[in-house]
Design a protein around this nucleic acid. Structure first.
Lengths: 333, 333
DNA sequence: CTGAAAGCGCTTACAG
DNA sequence: CTGAAAGCGCTTACAG
């Protein structure tokens, strides 16, 4: 592998000049610059990234920690982060926390040890405190990690869109299956839904809402869905709003087992718009998270001055949009 | 950040000794070793990975290039690779090739520039030649990249298991939806299926098999499924075997649109056993790929002597197993 | 068994 | 505008 030295020799300049040509580009005059570039070309020179990293104490890598890359939403997010990072010539280092605080901590410090340019973390649900003092800019994505700035969708807003949609269709008996209440995401989605329903509710035209807390996964959807749907002698919702697509799909599954016709007998909504949402039957009405913009915003922060100057980031959550598909309709009279 | 120097000073030894304690461990006598370890502890010393990389020309990182991390099977694979790498103290650098040869090439050389310990690549479908000459051990996973050693499932074997299963259920009119025929995976699965059916076929008890070529994705399943299922006046399969779960799920979707009862009217099978396969209704009969063992084998190769000595790897594909679920049953008389 | 020293390949003040 | 030189933090022959 050729080094700066080889390039310098071939171009008849000093290594400093080679280095300058390869970076600042200014300063160096045209004739020299050209000779260097030619030598680089001829030798197929590629800078040794480790040496550069040692010198500059910085590496063109973004660390990314997600709870589970197998979760379609996180995979989507990871893909967008990778794309955004690539735009800036950075690679991404991926680790799974398995939604476990201890593993998360281990993974984060493993990545931090490599002194990446920045760090994006989608926090584990049960994240614990662990006081980092690092120069690496860290940003939370989707779920807040510690008290690092958070880039996320406006969950309450998304939930309100769903509430509006169901209300407008005529639903007045609604069940809400919430995500884990030890997560900000779970809480804001639930809160946003409840408070919009409260706004819509009136004495003349009352809305009955029952909420159930679960996790974000399929299984939770199945379990809670079964509970809700087999207690019909008591009370019967005409619509179930779930805090995630995976929950919604779990509910859908149970509903089908129970021979219900979706959406005729029961409307179902999700949240996230994972790829699968439009592949199941019926297609799922849901909230589309702006994943590209989330990734873009997270990386923009990392590369911004603010990240290094400890200026707290202005957090303005990004709006999602409602995607109305076949899983919702007006309730039967 | 403390350095070896600081540790050495505090422990009253030379930096060489510190380094030795941190690596070889042998050689250094107990009393000194202890002092060093104490100093490390007290200072919270962590080695500078860039410096180490510069010196050893090696970094504890595995590069991983997949066509699309959003594809559930690749996500599964990535997760297992990450887990295996972590066991050996390595991090994973992830890149998506978007199933495009040019992007793949770019991503691979970007990762190679960082001189990782090894490189795992799940090739893009339309991979092109690009003659790498690198010291980094490269291994192909699932789909062969160039002529690097391949770790994969025995696709033909898996397909044969499906063929056996359908035949034993009594199916004699079968459609096979193949994956892309410009990929080894697509070809072996198709070939394995066809040849097993040919073995089963006899004059007295003939089997009719029609094959259709597509991609591995949902959409292809929908498109081809529709074509096959709406041409029933001509010929009617009682079972459709698809070359991937995603294809199968696409077929399932169309079948439902056409008011078919699965499996009563039509049996459907997939391949891969992605998480989704057991979440849809009905659950999908499919071939489970041994993802953990695939990841394990790929990394074992990278860390083996063979990888550096250019000894060609013995490629023995790993057997998958059939998972029989609700999407298959005996055909109606 | 341990220390002193060289050197990995860069970048960047410092002169001129 | 360009060169000579120091130094980033390690590891590893080389002596002793």
């Amino acid at each position: 592998m050729p080094t700066v030295k080889d390039v310098a020799k071939l171009a008849g300049v000093s290594v400093g000049t080679v280095s300058r040509v390869l970076s600042e580009n200014k300063a160096v005059k045209q004739p020299l610059k050209e000779r260097v570039l030619n030598a680089v070309e001829k030798l197929g020179y590629k800078p040794n990234l480790a040496a550069r990293a040692l010198r500059t104490n910085r590496i063109d890598v973004i660390g990314l920690v997600v709870p589970d890359i197998t979760n379609p939403f996180f995979a989507q997010l990871a893909k967008c982060i990778e794309t955004e990072a690539a735009k800036r010539g950075h690679s991404v280092m991926l680790a799974n926390s398995h939604d476990d605080a201890a593993t998360e901590r281990k993974q984060i410090s493993a990545l931090l040890d490599r002194s990446p340019r920045g760090m994006v973390v989608v926090a584990a649900a049960d994240t614990a405190e662990l006081g980092y003092h690092t120069d690496v800019p860290v940003v939370s994505l989707d779920r807040r990690f510690e008290n690092f700035p958070l880039v996320s969708t406006d969950h309450a807003h998304g939930s309100a869109l769903i509430a509006d949609h169901l209300y407008q269709l005529g639903h007045r008996d609604i069940a809400y299956i919430a995500g884990p209440q030890n997560t900000e995401v779970g809480r804001s989605r639930k809160q946003g839904f409840i408070s919009r329903i409260q706004d819509l509710h009136s004495e003349n035209d009352p809305v009955t809402l029952r909420t159930y807390d679960g996790l974000f996964d399929y299984k939770s959807g199945e379990d809670i869905g079964r509970k809700v749907l087999t207690a019909w002698d008591d009370w019967r919702p005409t619509a179930i709003a779930a805090a995630s697509d995976q929950l919604a799909i779990g509910v859908l599954r149970v509903a089908r087992d129970l021979k219900l016709d979706i959406p005729a007998d029961l409307s179902i909504t999700g949240f996230d718009d994972i790829a699968l949402a439009s592949l199941i039957v019926p297609r799922l009405t849901t909230i589309r998270q702006p994943t590209e913009r989330l990734a873009e915003t997270a990386l923009a922060y990392i590369f911004s001055e603010d990240a290094s100057t400890t200026v707290p980031m202005k957090e303005h959550p990004l709006k999602g949009e409602i995607v109305i598909r076949g899983s919702t309709t007006a309730p039967e009279k």
